[in-house]
């Protein structure tokens, strides 16, 4: 059996939703905490509204830049269907943090497929713990629908031992000054949701 102290976080969503900022923020934070870190992104065609995934791995020594099936400690999802799509990558007892927002993929839009119902309970049935939050609503109340990433990061922060100051410093280093307050607010709303 592979033994590993490496922690694995997958950030998944729909191309164009802003998952790259979330991974940038996490990467910076983990680096300052002295971990070995790898962050793997997908660029190119899938960014055009396709299913996208970013892998964040940290520990004493990280080798592979990607996360494979049965390995993720966390899936952070910008969209409900995408959380369900990637559950196979979670390890036993893994945690799902998902936005409840639904974005119809083209096969659903054209009527060739259906958007599956009751996905949250279906994920829970498999023994995964699911935090389902309306991150879009919280982001809008923080000031911008684009802050969904910070809402989700705020929620994720509950499960780590880093201080709020450390998170805030990472946010300051990752977002433009004029959006700083809005992003900090979104983070707090996610944390306390």
């Amino acid at each position: 059996m592979k033994t590993n102290d490496t922690k694995n976080i997958m950030i998944v969503g729909v191309g164009g939703q802003g998952s790259l900022l979330a991974s940038k923020l996490l990467g910076r934070l983990l680096l300052t905490k002295g971990y070995d870190v790898k962050v793997s992104e997908v660029h190119g065609m899938s960014q055009r509204g396709g299913s996208v995934v970013t892998y964040v791995r940290f520990g004493n020594k990280v080798y592979s830049p990607v996360i494979d099936e049965g390995e993720a400690d966390f899936i952070v999802s910008f969209e409900l269907l995408e959380a369900a799509r990637w559950t196979k990558f979670l390890k036993n007892g893994g945690k799902i943090i998902t936005n409840t927002q639904q974005v119809n993929p083209m096969p659903v839009v054209t009527g060739a497929a259906e958007y599956p119902k009751e996905l949250v309970s279906k994920m829970e049935e498999k023994g995964f713990s699911v935090d389902a939050i309306d991150a879009l609503d919280l982001a809008e109340s923080a000031g911008s629908s684009k802050a969904v990433n910070l809402v989700l990061m705020g929620r994720l922060s509950k499960y780590f031992d880093f201080t709020e100051d450390e998170w805030m410093t990472a946010i300051e280093n990752s977002v433009p000054p004029k959006f700083l307050e809005m992003n900090k607010k979104a983070f707090s709303l996610g944390l306390n949701a």
């Binding site: 509204g49 396709g50 299913s51 099936e69 559950t87 993929p105 497929a113 995964f128």
Partner: peptide
Amino acid sequence: GIEYEAGNEVDAVIPNRPPVMC
């Protein structure tokens, strides 16, 4: 021949999400 953990899928048909024109 090294053991690894297989993942656990949800019981639902997950439609594909191919890239689209914006």
